[in-house]
């Protein structure tokens, strides 16, 4: 079996206008690699929400993508403040985003729920004061 294609991105923490560059790049690469359109859209939306979170909450972070014909795997790692109550953070409408973020069109408390909704596999681990680690996968046949 061929080795997975690996893509690495760094999301800056100080420039909200650049959040979304990684997901836009992933989307165009998946298109040129011939992945199914529905899988591309789900993966791109989930990663975009993740990028926004990295920029808003975590002071930036790293994204690692691994591609095989069957799976689009995305790992998001940051060294931000962490999430004290993951169950609460996963509920729709819960947000700790400041008004400034809301004025930018985000912070509606839909980020993590959207990421889970659009992916086939989703896991999150977080330690307060150390950071958050998210693993997501979209199955191309799903």
């Amino acid at each position: 079996m061929a080795e997975p294609i690996r893509l690495d991105y760094v999301v800056p923490g100080d420039d909200f206008t650049r959040a979304g560059e990684a997901s836009a790049d992933l989307k165009s690469r998946l298109k040129s690699l011939g992945f199914p359109p529905a899988a591309i859209r789900r993966a791109a939306i989930a990663l975009y929400e993740g990028e926004i979170n990295l920029a808003i909450h975590a002071g930036g972070g790293r994204i690692t993508v691994a591609l095989t014909p069957e799976r689009i795997e995305m790992a998001l790692d940051d060294e931000g403040p962490g999430i004290p109550d993951i169950a609460l953070a996963m509920s729709e409408g819960y947000s700790t985003a400041p008004d400034e973020v809301r004025s930018l069109g985000f912070g509606a408390g839909m980020g993590l729920p959207n990421m889970k909704k659009y992916t086939d596999e989703f896991s999150i681990a977080s330690t307060v004061g150390e950071g958050t680690h998210i693993r997501m996968a979209v199955l191309t046949a799903g």
């Binding site: 909200f16 206008t17 959040a19 979304g20 997901s23 836009a24 989307k27 859209r41 791109a44 939306i45 975009y48 926004i52 930018l104 069109g105 985000f106």
Partner: peptide, 17 residues
């Protein structure tokens, strides 16, 4: 259709095709 004016509007629309 939006009243929000920042680059994330274009990125969001792009994600949704």
């Amino acid at each position: 259709i939006t009243g929000l004016n920042n680059p994330q509007v274009v990125r969001t629309a792009d994600m949704m095709d």
